[in-house]
Design a protein around this nucleic acid. Structure first.
Length: 586
DNA sequence: GAGGTTCAACCTTTT
DNA sequence: GTTGAACCTC
């Protein structure tokens, strides 16, 4: 039988995870142990064994991951009919296909959600805690059914009022997608206990599923669907939004019969990095994992006087190890013999996004190209959002809702517009349309916004959900370009770089003072295990926090790494020349 | 209801 | 040091 390339060169545990079709499979996949590989290989194996592509559903954590996996499947010459998607996208499609036209709802983005929530609170005459309450409600909706029982009266009232508003206006927020899909599936199952939408379900990043998503998995699995859940409980870093590593444990009992497989060979990190990362977690779970990479590697820690000198050193170091491509080092010939070829092999990670700006500033000064993730422009997003409402209004969908999202004056303008005018607007070419839209919305668009917005017009025409479609496009870092990547540790999950800097390794930042220590440890673990060759940890003694200077201590997590950590002096003791005798001699 | 002032909070984030 | 929510005034 012809072997698909995706099925070659699997190690023993990987092969087992791929080929076990008789049971549900839970795979513990530590960093760099070939998680994506197992997932794609299992799909290939299923297809090779005659499983119908349409009966396979693979769930990933992000749209980006889904696209990448589809790409792999396509390149391997396998059927593109396997559904590889996110929980939310699947739920959206499922609901659109299943619900009658009247019951179908519009999905609202974050901005509209805030506005609507604000309105609801106002109608209830509650003030001063909008964002705290919204956060709370969102958290409760990570459970199916939403977990209201232990909540105070006020929270329940707000929850119900908010849900009523959404229902009355035919709206879904992102969390509703999961909840409604689960509830709808449950109804279908009650009507037909043998219901089973898929024969095989594969779920990636299982350590980050919420309870609602876990329930959805159970409902999707039905009675005899085979489920493979793969993840690393040590990398569960989204507790603040409802994910819980406990579901990996629960899987074993809830999805019976279940085979548990640990991937024991790590292909990314050198052993020293695994040991160091493991020690931060108290050596849980990683003990048996062995690295394939034999090369010696170092973890270097440096403490600086000020966040400025920290950032400046990072910039110099990057320039140095990538062979010095900045003007200055070319001129001065300070480039070192390090064999890194590209700035794209370097990432600078941090706990809080704000720190990215400090580092960006120094890189800018040093002439080192960089890209900053999550560098979003709220004003721009709002313009896009308004344009979307305008387009949907013109298309005649959910008119009341879209109108209600505009400021009163704009709303009036639209309401009094004649039918002929509206029709004319719809047929306009992009440039002219944007010109008109600018007038209607009372907003100017600069040239880069015009490009963004005309792209938006195009994707809207293709029926895509704009607020989301554009957002993901903006956020995406490009790892092909010659630039250092700057991002939060959260954003680095799933990525890999030869050289990783983690800045701000200070008590109060990492661990974050208001965070939960175990999750902060896992976060540090995720950061450390992104690197394949070199790790630099830095800290500052003073940091400016919201306009105030604060004295900082190094992160207590550094202690756990013991001798695996090389502490370099920020200012190596200079060999002082013997000074001439001073006047003040005793 | 628009426009100005004050005061508090400030993390991580996918869909 | 910045933002945004709440409160005040016209």
């Amino acid at each position: 039988m012809k072997q698909n390339p995706l099925l070659q060169y699997l190690n023993r545990q990987q092969g087992q995870a791929v080929q076990d079709l008789d049971a549900n499979v839970l795979v513990d996949a530590g960093p760099g142990t070939g998680k994506t590989r197992v997932l794609t290989a299992r799909i290939a194996w299923l297809l090779q064994n005659g499983c119908e592509p349409g009966r396979i559903l693979a769930i990933t954590f992000t749209n980006k991951a889904a696209t990448e996996m589809q790409e792999r499947i396509r390149k391997a010459g396998l059927s593109p009919d396997v559904c590889i998607t996110t929980f939310h996208s699947w739920a959206f499609r499922f609901l659109s296909e299943s619900l009658s036209k009247e019951k179908r709802s519009v999905v609202i983005g974050e901005q509209d959600q805030k506005k609507i929530f604000g309105k609801v609170l106002k109608s209830l005459d509650i003030q001063g805690k909008t964002s705290r309450l919204l956060e709370k409600i969102q958290f409760l909706k990570q459970f199916y059914p939403p977990r209201l029982r232990d909540e105070p009266e006020e929270v329940r009232t707000v929850f119900e009022a908010y849900q009523d508003y959404l229902k009355a206006h035919g709206l879904f927020d992102y969390d509703d997608l999961i909840i409604s899909a689960a509830s709808f599936l449950e109804k279908l199952r009650d009507a037909d206990p043998l219901l089973q939408p898929f024969d095989h379900l594969l779920v990636d990043e299982f350590q980050d599923v919420s309870q609602a998503q876990y329930r959805l998995c159970q409902l999707l699995a039905g009675r005899s669907c085979r489920v493979m859940a793969i993840g690393d409980p040590n990398q569960s870093i989204y507790g603040f939004r409802g994910s819980d590593p406990v579901f990996m444990e629960r899987f074993v009992t809830d999805f019976h019969p279940c085979t548990r497989i640990r991937l024991l060979t790590a292909y990314r990190c050198p052993q020293k990095f695994l040991d160091a990362a493991g020690s931060v977690l108290g050596n849980k779970g990683l003990a048996e994992v062995r690295s394939e990479r034999k090369k010696e590697a170092e973890i270097i820690f440096r403490q600086f006087k000020h966040q400025r000198s920290e950032a400046a050193w990072i910039a110099r170091k990057i320039d140095n190890i990538t062979g010095g491509i900045s003007f200055e080092s070319l001129n001065q010939g300070t480039a070192s013999g390090h064999d890194l070829k590209s700035l794209s092999q370097v990432a600078v990670l941090f706990r809080i996004n704000r720190m990215g700006e400090n580092i960006a500033e120094e890189l800018e000064k040093a002439g080192i190209p960089f890209q900053l993730a999550r560098d979003t422009d709220a004003g721009r997003e709002e313009k896009l959002n308004m344009l979307w409402h305008l387009l949907e209004f013109l298309a005649g969908r959910n008119i009341d809702h879209h109108l209600s999202m505009f400021q009163p004056d704009i709303r009036k303008r639209l309401e009094t517009m004649g039918n002929e005018m509206l029709r004319k607007l719809q047929g306009m070419p992009p440039d002219a349309f944007l010109e008109m839209a600018s007038g209607i919305l009372g907003q100017g668009f600069d040239s880069s916004e015009k490009i963004l917005l005309s792209n938006a017009l195009e994707s809207h025409r293709q029926g895509r959900f704009l607020p989301l479609a554009m957002k993901t496009e903006q956020d995406r870092l490009d790892f092909q370009i010659e630039a250092v990547s700057l991002m939060s540790i959260h954003a680095a999950k799933g990525l890999e770089f030869p050289v990783v800097f983690i800045a701000g390794c200070e008590d109060g930042i990492l661990p974050w003072e208001k965070g939960e220590v175990p999750e902060e440890r896992r976060l540090f673990y995720v950061g450390l295990t992104r690197a394949s060759r070199q790790i630099f940890l830095t800290a500052a003694r003073t940091r400016i926090f919201w306009g105030k200077t604060r004295k900082m201590q190094p992160s207590p997590f550094l202690e756990d790494m013991g001798r695996l950590l090389v502490r370099e002096e920020a200012r190596p003791p200079r060999k002082r020349k013997k000074r001439p005798a001073q006047k003040k001699l005793f």
